[in-house]
Design a protein around this nucleic acid. Structure first.
Length: 294
DNA sequence: CAAGGCTCCTGATAGC
DNA sequence: TGCTATCAGGAGCCTT
């Protein structure tokens, strides 16, 4: 379940291992992996071939690789289970390999042919994918213009976010997951930030005071930065960095996945509630349910 | 227009 | 043993 910290770990890996390399060829092994590329797999492969990759960027859970001197970028979303792996050419084909990107060069002059690497998009549940898009003057792929800046973006506007919460007629967890208000937050970090702020997931956003919004944003940023520092959250092999390694933040989670376990603040057993086709984990004592509007 | 619900997908796991 | 049901969930799209 890659959210902002996990995607940022992947972005950093791409920056180190594939930036500035020239694409020799692209092989699409599953059409669903390029479903956001309307012209299809063949068109995608053809248009990427021969271009040099620029520095990878990220907004929220989206990341993209600019194609130098083309005004276009390869946009990637990992969905539920997507992985971007930098693998030796000799590595066995993964069971869920969807797209393979070969390069014209080798990473260093000293690297032997056997050590040369390629980029692989592997995705078990096929919610993720790659696509090619024009970029706006500020370098953003045009199809994600509606995605808000994320809380780690220096240009994220805290006051505008607060005002948006005040205007909305919805509840706080829905707002945190609304990528057009704040991007990069998914189910795990939403539950973690709400637990830290002692706020119930169904609190109406219109009740948020400016200090409470500020506190929530601080906790969102803290939990994401702490996760980033240890390589992200991994429950299994579905989320890994570009070298196939797992992160360690799952050991630090206070709410998510802890149904029945004692709250680390007050020892009350945490609860899990079905919510929007997923689950919300919370402490029934620290995070009081809001009074139901009559 | 805003808000909320539906749907895509595969594999692990539980229950019978 | 082998079947079915359930769960994981991001975000585009559809309905209300």
């Amino acid at each position: 379940m890659p959210e902002l910290p996990e995607v940022e770990v992947v972005r950093r890996g791409l920056e180190r291992w594939v930036a500035h390399r020239i694409v020799a060829g692209v092989e699409v092994l599953h059409p669903r992996a390029v479903r956001r590329h309307p012209a299809g797999a063949e068109d995608f492969a053809h248009r990427v071939q021969g271009h040099r990759l620029g520095l990878p960027s990220r907004r929220g859970k989206y990341l993209w690789l600019p194609l130098q001197d083309s005004g276009q970028a390869i946009l990637a979303h990992l969905g539920m289970s997507g992985q971007l792996l930098v693998q030796p050419l000799s590595a066995p084909t993964e069971k869920h390999l969807r797209i393979r990107v070969r390069f014209a060069d080798t990473p260093t002059a000293a690297a032997s042919a056997a050590e040369a690497t390629e980029l692989r998009f592997v995705d078990q549940r096929t919610f993720g994918g790659l696509s090619l898009h024009d970029t706006t003057p500020d370098g953003l792929p045009d199809v994600i213009a509606h995605i808000a800046r994320d809380p780690l973006d220096p240009l994220f506007d805290d006051e505008a976010f607060h005002q948006a919460l005040r205007r909305k007629r919805t509840t706080i967890k829905r707002a945190l997951l609304d990528q057009s208000l704040i991007s990069g937050v998914g189910n795990i970090y939403a539950d973690e930030a709400l637990w830290r702020t002692r706020v119930h997931y169904e609190r109406p956003t219109a009740t948020f005071t400016r200090p409470r919004t500020a506190e929530l944003l601080t906790h969102v940023r803290d939990v994401m930065n702490e996760a980033l520092a240890v390589g992200g959250t991994s429950f299994d092999s579905l989320y890994v960095n570009v070298n196939g390694e797992s992160g360690y933040f799952d050991r630090s989670l206070d709410a998510y996945g802890r149904e029945g376990l004692p709250c680390r603040r007050c020892a009350t057993p945490l609860r899990r509630r079905p919510w929007m086709n997923r689950s919300s984990y919370y402490c029934p004592k620290c995070q009081r349910a809001p009074r139901v509007a009559s």
